[in-house]
């Protein structure tokens, strides 16, 4: 039987995890890492290469590309490593509808990280968009029409 009692040191670390799991600050990263191990699935460089080829296509013929980061199996800490590798560029925009959303230009122009949060502040979706301008930054014609009607009503005598 391969199951054996936990090493008391592991038990202590698991206790720390349990104690912090329901707290406002989340699990202790050090305790998490000791249990999960330091793992490299190999998917981060693959994703970075996908971004690289997408940038080449964007420049060649204007083809845009998007990656659903949460649909890729990543190990502990790998999503952060991916975002660190892409870095942060000059532009960052936020809007608040169904929770906050953040559009962050990466250190490589043409690569945008779009993160949608739910109303409780948890990440509901994260996408890497390879495009000159993310569609979410443009004013949608429907909203422009509604805004125009509102402005016209305010200016009406």
């Amino acid at each position: 039987m391969p199951f054996e009692a936990l090493d008391p040191r592991d038990a202590g670390r698991l206790e720390a995890l349990t104690a912090t799991a329901s707290g406002a600050h989340g699990p202790d990263p050090e305790a998490c890492e000791s249990v999960r191990g330091r793992v490299d699935s190999g998917n981060v460089p693959l994703l970075l290469n996908e971004v690289r080829y997408a940038l080449e296509r964007l420049l060649d013929d204007g083809t845009t590309h998007a990656i659903d980061v949460r649909a890729i199996p990543l190990g502990p800490g790998e999503e952060d490593r991916l975002l660190d590798a892409l870095g942060r560029g000059e532009l960052r925009a936020e809007f608040d509808s169904l929770g906050r959303s953040e559009v962050q230009e990466c250190a490589y122009p043409g690569v945008w990280c779009v993160t949608h949060y739910n109303e409780a502040g948890h990440v509901a979706g994260r996408f890497l968009e390879v495009t000159f301008t993310p569609a979410l930054l443009a004013s949608p014609p429907e909203d422009v029409r509604t805004g125009l009607e509102r402005l016209a009503a305010e200016l009406a005598p």
């Binding site: 809007f95 509808s97 169904l98 959303s101 949608h116 979706g125 569609a135 979410l136 949608p140 429907e142 909203d143």
Partner: peptide, 8 residues
């Protein structure tokens, strides 16, 4: 909810 929110 705005059109932008709908797209989200």
């Amino acid at each position: 909810i705005s059109r932008r929110g709908f797209m989200k």
